[in-house]
Design a protein around this nucleic acid. Structure first.
Lengths: 340, 340
DNA sequence: CTGAAAGCGCTAACAG
DNA sequence: CTGTTAGCGCTTTCAG
């Protein structure tokens, strides 16, 4: 109903309220002193005009946006979704809004997402797609915290699980149940979390006196389809492994699918332990044993770290390492009798 | 290595390159005429100084951000994740960046997310949490497209599946397999898609000459835990239904879990048909029959609609309705013999 | 408490 | 092709 077609500005409101621009701006912006009478007039005028703050202008003038950006690898991966909830949870308490961008685990897209966000937010949290970190991550003059993965030579706050130890948990479980020939289906090892899990796998095998057979390690890219293909290769071998460690939830799905197609029974023909728990894992046949990360907490912790920086903390960077735990179900042969 | 501590601006680059501010701005901004020599000097200076565009300033000055915002109900719900990929897919082709915000299916949060985004983007796509639509949605002077749900009295472009018809598909399947007493576990019917699915359920029952028993309809809020509780109530009755229609993927998980806990076999003791397919559904025991929406396409279509508006299209609002299809697996009793 | 005025960093006319 | 000069809408001194 405003006379002008365009969105009303502070000046419009000021004029209508019969106060100076500065007073209207203060009342509308919620800063500085404003008398009760003026405030009322301004608020009424704003309501009548349908005034709405222009965040872009505010950001340019004040240099702060009260929002933080999150760049994730794959929005369809529940891991990232849950991290984002943990992060939002902590941020909201401080009045920050969270904006997300997806990188599809692609370095180029990641760089663009970071660029798109970095001038629009006060701080950034990122799960870097490549451990060798392009320029994109090095430059931001905004506070940055990385999670799940690390980047060589990038000294910033980070949150993650001890991936090598967590992988060890999974492999040891397999070993204890008598499996010796353990294959792995994993994401590309350019992702630092993947390579750490692989390291844990190797270490655990070594500790058990088993020689690592690299041909048993299948590296797919990221999709379920890739994991599926990799699992098919591994399980189709004459000398197929008697157990598989899937380093990520998509990989677990791929192995499950491949086993089903090949008519292989789990855990009798081949055992399976996954990394990353999922809601559906107790529901499949057989229920899947997997390493569970404290996902929500990872997001929360990242949020706390970032908030501290935004508040001006200047201490040296912190590396927060959370513990993962093994959720034993039936896909490795343990507890099968406990089935309901 | 810039002399000043702060991020270099166009003026800094111009000065260093020995050209005027405007020339540097043009070279850096990629608009207007710039001679090859000047361009080179500017680019060199920019590189040396580590110049980076300030998108906020650019947005304020140009009135355009080249980004669109997506407000979803629950980032952990794969439905939204996939829609967002479809949307990003279309948008990227036109050089737009996608920014996401989560509403947690809460009206207040939704309003805040919309507010946070709307002055930072050129257009918005939203899955409205409430069908009665607050002011938040009515005001934006930016192009808006809604998906999955509709809002009474809000005349904007929208994309969705024909929910009533799709629900009919699911219920008819159950009916054809001889199930008569069909319960439903659903989300709150304030969500327009849920109420449409319920409408489809009722219509199909009526068509089969079966009276609708409202006590067989359990409405939970949104979480898996709620769905789980609702399913427990329904399946715990003495006169428990012989089939259940779950109107959403979380609901399906809840029913599966409840049945397992109650020691009920699917489909023998109770049949189950879900709405929304998921990657794990073929993997559970038994594989779940469900209505599959063309999720990625919904995102793409929303993107196309929005792009058209951004390009200035001014035609009356369009309602795109996509078809869903039933994916028959084994949880209703059909095809059980086809099991591998 | 209120007003005037100077930018934030960039785009966009408008002259040269 | 290049330079000058207004703003975009708001925050922020600095005087009153």
């Amino acid at each position: 109903m405003a006379s002008k077609g365009a969105t009303p500005t502070v000046s419009d409101v000021a004029e209508r309220a019969g106060v100076s621009f500065a007073t209207a701006a203060r009342a509308l912006g919620g800063y500085g002193y404003v008398g009760a009478a003026s405030r009322e007039k301004v608020e009424a005028a704003a309501r009548e005009l349908g005034y709405r703050q222009n965040d872009v202008a505010r950001a340019l003038a004040s240099g702060s946006t009260r929002t933080v950006g999150l760049v994730i690898g794959d929005i369809e991966n529940p891991f990232f979704a849950t991290v984002s909830r943990g992060l939002a949870d902590v941020l909201e308490g401080e009045g920050y809004t969270l904006l997300l961008a997806n990188s599809d685990e692609d370095a180029g897209r990641e760089a663009r997402s970071i660029a798109a966000l970095s001038s629009r937010v006060d701080g950034l949290v990122v799960a870097p797609a490549v451990s060798s970190g392009d320029q994109a991550l090095r430059r931001p003059d905004k506070p940055l915290v990385v999670f799940d993965r690390t980047v060589r030579g990038l000294d910033v706050d980070s949150v993650a699980v001890d991936n090598a130890a967590a992988a060890g948990l999974a492999v040891r479980h397999l070993l204890e149940l008598g499996h010796r020939r353990i294959g792995v289906v994993c994401a590309p090892s350019t992702i630092s979390s993947t390579s750490a899990r692989l390291r844990g796998y190797r270490a655990e095998l070594k500790r058990a006196g088993i020689e690592v057979d690299d041909s048993l390690i299948e590296r797919g890219p990221f999709t379920r389809a890739d994991a599926h293909a990799a699992a098919l290769r591994l399980l189709g071998r004459d000398d197929r492994p008697d157990a598989i460690f899937a380093t990520e939830n998509y990989m677990t799905e791929g192995v499950l699918l491949a086993a089903r197609e090949l008519g292989l029974r789990i855990p009798d023909d081949v055992a399976l332990v996954g990394f990353d728990d999922a809601e559906w894992m107790p529901l499949v046949d057989p229920p899947v044993t997997a390493v569970a990360q404290p996902v929500f907490e990872i997001g929360q912790e990242a949020g706390r770290l970032l908030l501290a920086r935004l508040a001006g903390e200047t201490a040296p960077s912190r590396k927060v390492r959370l513990a993962a735990r093994l959720v034993v179900r039936e896909s490795c042969g343990a507890g099968a009798s406990a089935r309901r």
